[in-house]
Amino acid sequence: MRTRTQEKIIETLLKLAASITILTTIGIIGVLLYETIAFFKEVSIVDFLTDTEWTPLFAQKHFGILPLVSGTVLTTLIAIAVALPIGLTIAVYLNMYAPKAFRKTFKPMLEVLAAVPTVVYGFFALTVVTPFLQSIYPDLSGFNSLSAGIVMGIMIIPFVSSLSEDALYAIPKTLKEASFGMGATRFQTSFKVMVPAASSGIIVSVILAISRAIGETMIVAIAAGQQPRLTFDPTVPIETITAYIVQVSMGDVPHGSLEYRTIFAAGITLFIFTFLLNTVSFWIKKKYQEKYD
């Protein structure tokens, strides 16, 4: 029958479209592994994990990933230190205190923060936030993780606030009412009942925000500097994994060279971090869905 073959063909095409996502994953892992294995033929994996210097572009080459990791972790920590308290407060406020109309207008408005291209935030960090911070703390270097981290934190506020608010919103009303019924204030109800009840959703939102911050590139490439160094001092220039990849890509490194392969070794490190975070959040989400279904 004609229509039946037609139906089959269409279904197959749609299935192929969906399967491209599998190819993407295979491609990502394959490409990273392929170049990284070639990289480790020349560089010892022990050096990579323990050396405290990262200078592949210099004459005196060192291939220790730690400085890039510390740069990434440092900026991410600063960003979360900004986004978590603010984002969670916003979520609780919108859910428990704000009038409906306020919530309806401000929730989408906050989401605009996540729609601004990150290169714009980079510009903002470099030309506005850093000078402002320098006016308070003059020793602050022109490139630093503090400014980049703060701006990154602002960018990821909506990830925390919107998703946490969704999680709070999903809590059955009866729970809230029971707490009010016992004479608890909104503040007590929020933090003793609602936030714990929504904790898995909130944790997922924070993990997502962290994963976003780890992978963020342009803000740190513009405002945090290009000097890999193993430090947790937020006032000096550092370099993140992502910024390093950009730095190499901007230059003229020949394909197939050791320098070229460093960006894949750095990339796989980044990928592993975010993959672990995604897996944990996926796992929490699944547990949590089971609980409420």
Binding site: V31, L32, L270
Partner: peptide, 29 residues
């Protein structure tokens, strides 16, 4: 389909620069 779904959720969390590395090796080269 279930497998595809998990995979897509994971892809959504992969940093954009990693896609750059994929594009560099596959499409560019």
């Amino acid at each position: 389909a279930n497998f595809l779904e998990i995979n897509i959720a994971n892809l959504a969390g992969v940093p954009s620069i990693i896609y750059g590395l994929l594009g560099l090796e596959i499409f560019v080269r």
